Every structure is written in C-alpha cells, then in structure tokens.
Simulated assay, not measured.
Amino acid sequence: MSDSLITKRAIAEALKQVCKEKPFDKISISDITAVCGLNRQTFYYHYQDKYELLSWIYYNENFAAIADDISLDNWNEKIHELLSNMKQEKNFYVNTIKEQEHTFESYLYEMTKALFSEAIELLDEKGKLTFEERDFDAGFYAYGLCGVIMDWVKEGMKMEPKEVSKRLKSLARATERIGYIRSQAEL
C-alpha cells in the first residue's frame, strides 16, 4: 500500500472518530488533523475539504468494493454487504448522511440505476421499450431502492441488513414476475 493511501486512510479514520462526538457540519479540518496527528497542509495535500474526504470514504469503502463485480445474480448480496459495512460504523453513517445525504445517495443511485437498466434490458427480450422508457423505469426502481436505504439509515438502522436485502430481493422478484406476466399477455 502506498504512503499516500495510508495517509488518506488515516485521515478517513480520524473523521470517523470525530463523527462519534460531533455532528458532521460542526467538524473542522483541525478536529480531523488533531485526531490523526497530521497537520492541515497534509490534509489539504490529499483532500480539498471535508466534503471531498467524505466522498472518498463513501466511494472507496463502499461503492468501489461492491460495484466491482455486482451482477443481476448477486446484487442483493452486494446490498447486504453495503448495509452491513454501514451498520458496523453506524454512528458515522447516521451522522454524515443526516448532514450530507446527497453525496451518499448519488453514488447509490448511479450504481443501482445501472444495475436496473441492465435488468430491464434483459427482461425486454423483444426490444419493445425505447431507451427513454428503459431509462425512466430504471430511474424509478433506483429511486425506490435508494429511498428504502436512506430511510433505513435515518431511522437508525433498526432492521438487520440481511432482512433489508431479503425484502429488496423479494420486491425485485415480484416486479420481475409482473414483467414476465405482462410480456406473456402481450403475445
């Protein structure tokens, strides 16, 4: 692991520590650097501001790992992995998503929309849907999944990650069956 990556991770861990004691919007760069023992110049060498740091954490600790080999066959397992990672650091995610929900939600939305686009394309075997219709439908399902996850966080992550991913998979299967029934009715 490079020295730069080690430093970035140390700064990220420091932010997580500070988030246990302070709301994200009240955290300063000085708070973060005091915890990791680095100076402000080092922080700014790696990150423009705390928002870029937050985005780096969300992407590198969650989305890069699960997006790497996500597929239609394993997406619910990847969602379970994401939710489990989040629950392990519950204070951090509840704190930062409450203050900066758009950053996390935008990553989640882009990943799930791409996955739903792929699923809709596979289900539309006869190519009856236009690109705009597939894009609209994928956006609809992505917003739904994002909404469920964002509500789960805002409500304190009370439901276990396994149960959330199981329910999401169940909804997806129901939607797939409806799509299949509709396509058979059109024959």
Rank of each mutant, 00 (worst) to 15 (best):
I6S: 15
V94M: 09
E125Y: 06
E52N: 04
I149L: 08
A14D: 06
L123T: 10
A12H: 01
K90P: 02
K162F: 06
A12W: 00
L145D: 01
A10Y: 04
K98A: 04
S30A: 07
N62M: 06
L145V: 13
K8R: 11
R9M: 10
F92N: 10
K20W: 02
S2Q: 13
Y141S: 06
L5R: 08
E125P: 04
K50H: 05
P161D: 07
C19R: 03
N76V: 07
M150C: 08
F43Q: 00
L145K: 03
E105Y: 12
A185Y: 12
A67L: 03
Y44L: 14
M111C: 11
G147E: 01
S55E: 13
E176T: 14
S106Q: 10
L83A: 10
T33K: 01
W56G: 02
I97Q: 09
L122K: 15
D68T: 06
F136T: 09
K20L: 05
S28R: 09
K98N: 05
E160Q: 11
K90F: 02
H80R: 10
I27L: 11
E21G: 09
S30N: 13
W56N: 08
L115G: 04
A119Q: 06
Y107M: 01
D151Y: 11
G179A: 02
K90V: 03
G147M: 06
Y141D: 07
E21L: 08
M159H: 10
W75I: 03
I70W: 05
A67D: 12
R182W: 14
R177F: 08
L123C: 14
N74C: 09
N91K: 10
I178C: 11
E105R: 14
C146I: 06
D124S: 14
L115H: 09
T175Q: 04
E110N: 10
K166I: 05
M111S: 07
A174E: 14
A174W: 08
